[in-house]
Amino acid sequence: MCRECKRYGKTTPATTVHHIHPLDSYPELALVSNNLISLCATCHDAMHDRTSRELTGAGDQWMQRVSPPSQN
């Protein structure tokens, strides 16, 4: 299920895995489960500006809520 939709009481199938802390900045967290959330395509598109690849406000909010996971 999409974790972003779930926050609003919706049950939408997830189709994408989103890296909370972007791979460009945190490549070491690529496969760390605490850095991954399941999202539907609509919510995933809302996390990034698809032209600049920069995080949007929604993507930044997830980053602020989830501190970078350790790599133990």
Rank of each mutant, 00 (worst) to 15 (best):
A46K: 15
T56Q: 02
H21Q: 08
H48D: 02
Q64Y: 06
R7H: 04
K10Y: 11
L31I: 09
Q71S: 09
H44A: 02
V17S: 11
R3H: 03
P68C: 08
Q71W: 02
L29A: 02
T15W: 06
T11I: 13
P27L: 10
V66S: 07
C2H: 00
M63S: 05
Q71M: 12
L36V: 02
K10I: 09
L31Y: 15
V32W: 03
R65A: 15
P69G: 05
R3V: 06
V17R: 14
P27K: 09
T15Y: 05
H18R: 08
R53W: 05
Q71V: 13
P69L: 06
S67V: 10
T12W: 07
P13N: 05
L31W: 14
C2E: 00
I20R: 03
K10Q: 15
V32K: 11
P13V: 08
G57L: 14
Q71K: 14
T16V: 14
K6R: 09
T11F: 07
H18K: 10
N72E: 12
T42I: 11
C5T: 05
T42H: 09
L39C: 09
S38V: 04
A14V: 03
Q71R: 14
H48Q: 03
C2Y: 00
A30E: 11
L39E: 00
V32A: 09
G59E: 00
H44T: 02
S70N: 07
P22N: 04
Y8H: 13
R53G: 04
L39A: 02
V66G: 01
Y26T: 00
D49Q: 07
Q61W: 04
P69W: 03
V66L: 07
S25K: 15
K6G: 01
N72M: 06
D45H: 11
E54F: 07
A30I: 07
H19V: 10
R3T: 08
N34C: 04
Q64L: 12
D24G: 14
C5I: 04
L29S: 01
N35V: 09
N72R: 10
D45M: 08
A46N: 11
T15V: 10
P69I: 03
E54Y: 05
C40T: 05
N34S: 14
L29T: 00
N72G: 15
V66A: 05
S52G: 04
N72A: 13
S25Y: 07
M63K: 15
L55D: 02
D60S: 10
Q61S: 11
V66E: 08
S67W: 04
T16E: 12
H21N: 08
P13E: 12
P13L: 13
M1W: 07
L31M: 10
P68E: 12
L31C: 04
D60G: 07
N72D: 09
R50T: 12
T12V: 15
L31D: 13
Y26L: 01
Q64P: 00
A58C: 03
S25C: 06
Q61H: 09
P22M: 05
L55N: 08
R3I: 04
S52N: 12
H21F: 06
S52R: 11
D49P: 01
H21Y: 06
P13W: 09
A58Q: 03
T51W: 10
W62G: 00
A41Q: 11
L55P: 01
T16K: 13
A14N: 03
